[in-house]
């Protein structure tokens, strides 16, 4: 295993493809939590599927309303159906939530960098997710479970605000029953009925079973949660060039032309959203950059 782990991209698209919206039909709408939902999409234009790498995103277009970047949350080893998970936070995602089975949604992508699932082979893998940050990491778990023998210990640490905010409950139940995947959940606050952990997600890092010197960490959640998580991972001895985070910025084009997603020297839609912490650490701590 090389000490340096790089994020990879899938095959490039031409510009014409990159700006062209492809219509997909909604096959299923899944309510994940009170404000979060998943959309399963089938291509309408006769395409066979939609290849993507874990961590990449698509631009989703609601007719006449607008377009927003949404993480791909489905299984990268089965690309017939395209799955996205998002939270209702703005005009477009609100309109998206009102779409019904059979309605059409426009898709551009996949864009951006991806989690280093290939380069992590031979290592332990620690996945730390906060809130909706589990969505872009779910493809990693699917991928690793499909190639489970290639990895050492695999740990999923997942924190949300309350037990009601936990996403992908069916998956989590399945994952928790596996012996080759350690899944630890925690919530920031809970009342009597909750029998699980209470405390911020960083409290799980100290007691998670993995070898910090032989491990790749993938972290996704609110920026502040990632900041604290990286600190805690470093306390355990995880190397910064084997720590990966996923950034979020305003994106209007997805291909580095509109300028909105600039984060100092990088464009989050092109060089990101997944960054090696070593490469981003100087920028990561700069305020309002």
């Amino acid at each position: 295993m090389a000490t340096t782990v790089k994020n990879k991209k899938t095959a490039p698209l031409g510009t014409a493809d990159a700006m062209h919206i492809r219509p997909f039909s909604i096959r299923r709408v899944v309510k994940e939590s009170f404000d979060t939902f998943s959309l399963e999409l089938d291509p309408l234009s006769g395409e066979k599927g939609h290849k993507f790498a874990p961590g990449q995103f698509n631009m989703l277009y609601v007719y006449g309303v607008g377009e927003v970047p949404i993480s791909i949350s489905g299984d990268p080893t089965r690309h017939k159906t395209l799955t996205h998970t998002t939270r209702e936070v703005g005009t477009v995602t609100r309109a998206m939530r009102n779409l019904k089975v059979g309605d059409t949604l426009g898709v551009r992508g996949p864009f951006g960098s991806s989690w280093p699932v290939e380069d992590a082979v031979g290592n332990d893998v620690v996945i730390v997710a906060g809130g909706i940050g589990l969505a872009p990491l779910r493809p990693v778990i699917y991928y690793i479970l499909a190639h489970r023998e290639k990895y050492g210990k695999v740990v999923l640490l997942y924190g949300t605000r309350t037990p009601e905010d936990i996403l992908f409950r069916k998956d989590l139940e399945k994952w928790r029953s596996r012996f080759d995947l350690e899944t630890l959940l925690t919530v920031d606050r809970a009342t009597g009925a909750w029998k699980g952990n209470v405390g911020v997600v960083t409290t799980l890092i100290g007691r998670a079973p993995f070898d910090p010197l032989n491990c790749v960490a993938m972290v996704c959640g609110p920026e502040i949660m990632m900041r604290f998580t990286v600190l805690e991972l470093q306390k355990r001895g995880v190397e910064e060039d084997k720590t990966f985070i996923s950034m979020e910025r305003n994106m209007k084009c997805g291909i580095g032309l509109c300028g909105h997603c600039q984060l100092g020297p990088t464009f989050v839609c092109k060089e990101g959203p997944v960054y090696c912490y070593r490469d981003l650490k100087d920028v990561f701590i700069k305020r309002e950059m």
């Binding site: 277009y61 007719y63 006449g64 309303v65 607008g66 377009e67 209007k252 084009c253 032309l257 509109c258 300028g259 909105h260």
Partner: peptide, 10 residues
């Protein structure tokens, strides 16, 4: 300066 917004109208 090259920054642009992308807008949708109906």
């Amino acid at each position: 300066c090259f920054c642009v917004n992308v807008e949708d109208t109906t």
